[in-house]
Amino acid sequence: MIKTESNAVLLKPASIKKHDRGGGASTTPLVTKGLGASVFITGYTEFAGGAKIPFHYHNCEESVMLVEGHALFDIDGQEFEVAPQDMTFIPAGVPHRFRNASDTEPMKILWIYGSPDANRTLVETGETRPIAAEHAT
């Protein structure tokens, strides 16, 4: 990480600790409240072949871009194929999930939450956790 005089930051993801999400998915936080973000946070999640995350929703808007691989996006009872550079907008409170469409190739998404205090609620259990807490060291 390189911080400039004006508090701008250049992040080097290769040097940022990844956090295991289970099931073959890991997340790397990028722009966070800890860096001074006051309106949004960002990061990316990598999926091993065949990996998926459970249905969940957030307390704020989310946008996701597929950076690498081939994904399936489940929302509103529908499944959508997602190609690299496709982008989603997901309103707050809407259950969704992403799945790696390949059993062998990795997949990577870049996510942006519309609040530095974003949280994730798992549909199956109702458990809610702050996104920032998932990345605490």
Rank of each mutant, 00 (worst) to 15 (best):
V67E: 14
V67H: 13
E68N: 15
E68L: 12
E68P: 09
G69I: 03
G69A: 05
G69D: 04
H70L: 15
H70D: 10
H70G: 09
A71C: 07
L72S: 06
L72M: 12
L72D: 11
L72H: 13
F73Q: 01
D74H: 14
D74T: 11
D74Y: 11
I75Q: 01
I75K: 02
I75W: 00
I75N: 00
D76M: 10
D76T: 10
D76P: 05
G77V: 11
G77K: 09
Q78E: 09
Q78P: 01
Q78V: 04
Q78L: 05
Q78T: 08
Q78D: 03
E79K: 15
E79R: 15
F80Q: 09
F80A: 07
E81Y: 08
E81P: 03
V82S: 03
V82I: 15
V82G: 02
V82R: 02
A83N: 14
A83I: 07
A83W: 08
P84T: 11
P84C: 06
P84S: 06
Q85M: 14
D86N: 10
D86P: 02
D86I: 03
D86K: 01
M87A: 13
M87R: 10
T88Y: 02
T88C: 04
T88R: 00
F89S: 12
F89Y: 13
F89R: 04
I90H: 00
I90N: 00
P91T: 00
P91Q: 02
P91K: 01
A92D: 13
A92W: 05
A92R: 02
A92K: 06
G93V: 01
G93S: 02
G93D: 10
G93F: 05
G93R: 00
V94E: 05
V94A: 06
P95K: 01
P95E: 01
H96P: 05
H96W: 00
H96L: 02
R97W: 05
R97I: 07
F98V: 07
F98Q: 04
F98W: 11
R99V: 09
R99P: 02
R99A: 15
R99L: 13
N100R: 07
N100I: 10
N100Q: 06
A101G: 06
A101W: 15
S102G: 06
S102F: 14
D103C: 03
D103N: 11
T104D: 15
T104A: 15
T104E: 15
T104N: 15
T104G: 12
T104W: 12
E105C: 08
E105H: 13
P106C: 08
P106F: 09
P106W: 10
P106K: 08
M107P: 01
M107F: 03
M107C: 07
M107I: 01
M107T: 01
M107V: 00
K108E: 07
K108I: 12
K108F: 08
K108L: 13
